[in-house]
């Protein structure tokens, strides 16, 4: 039995740099799992995600999804980009509709696609703003449309590239709760890139910690043993939450402290 998503001996090198960004990354992810990838900036977190998305080619090794090799981007691995990447000339509805029309044309008729767009906008509570353009809504709302667009493609894996990185703390907490809710409902497999320790512990089943780049690889994988649904207020004082948080912090700041900061 293959794992759902299987990353094997994955190395990525860019033409101009002597050392590979990532070296022999191994990671197996089960269906429905929520996995966070954490590490210092420059360790190649986003590169890893882009390879899984198919936007970058692997230099060596490869990624299997349901036993099939990934070669190129596709809607089965929908990405929520860090900077939302909504098309500014389309309304929120049209942004989601473009993705739905493009990816589900064979499976749904026109009316069904329209309803499906509305359903996904409702899922992220954006029905009211569906006819607004991206520059008329806040950063958090844009990111929610980005999530709706990704979910509307019915992906096998949802890839989140630091989705809340550019948001203020309150908006971020609110969106984290919504993502947890959606994950509980749809049981989507999620890979989330983040540099926020609390976010990683709160949301994930497992946390993959990368060592510092270049030549970064998986340093440690922590299983977060907390039952769902999770409540950020109750968890704040939970010893298991604190222990997980400490473990990640210890990895990031003691064993693999940011080289840039150490040199300073």
């Amino acid at each position: 039995m293959h794992p759902f998503l299987d990353i094997t001996k994955l190395s990525i090198a860019f033409p101009k740099s002597p050392l590979p960004v990532l070296r022999e990354v191994d990671l197996k992810i089960e269906r429905g799992e929520y996995v966070a990838v954490i590490g210092h900036s420059g360790c190649g977190k986003s590169t890893l995600l882009n390879v899984v998305a198919g936007l970058l080619p692997a230099t060596a090794g490869g990624v299997l999804l349901e036993g099939r090799e990934i070669s190129g981007p596709g809607p089965d691995r929908a990405v929520v980009f860090q900077n939302h990447s909504l098309l500014p000339w389309l309304t929120c509805y049209e942004n989601v509709k473009l993705a739905v029309d493009q990816t589900l044309k064979g499976e749904m008729n026109k009316q069904q696609r329209h309803d499906w767009v509305l359903e996904n906008l409702a899922l992220v509570h954006m029905t009211a703003a569906k006819d607004k353009r991206p520059n008329e809504i806040s950063g958090g709302m844009k990111q929610r449309i980005g999530i709706a667009r990704a979910l509307a493609m019915r992906p096998k894996v949802l890839l989140l590239d630091e989705p809340f990185g550019a948001l203020d703390a309150l908006t971020r907490a609110h969106l984290q709760d919504q993502v947890m809710e959606i994950h509980a409902r749809l049981k989507t497999t999620v890979i989330m890139i983040t540099h926020d320790v609390d976010e990683a512990v709160l949301l994930s089943d497992r946390i993959v910690m990368l060592t510092n780049g270049p030549n970064a690889t998986v340093g440690e994988i922590l299983t977060v043993d907390l039952e769902r649904p999770r409540d950020r207020l109750k968890l704040a004082a939970d010893p298991r939450f604190v222990a997980a948080r400490t473990a990640v912090l210890e990895f990031l700041h003691s064993r693999h402290a940011n080289p840039a900061l150490q040199a300073a």
Binding site: A53, G54, G74, P75, V79, F81, S85, L87, Q102
Partner: peptide, 16 residues
Amino acid sequence: QDYRNVAAVIRLRGLA
């Protein structure tokens, strides 16, 4: 590049 990435993920190619 962001828009190109979006297009790549939803497989929007050619004339479209």
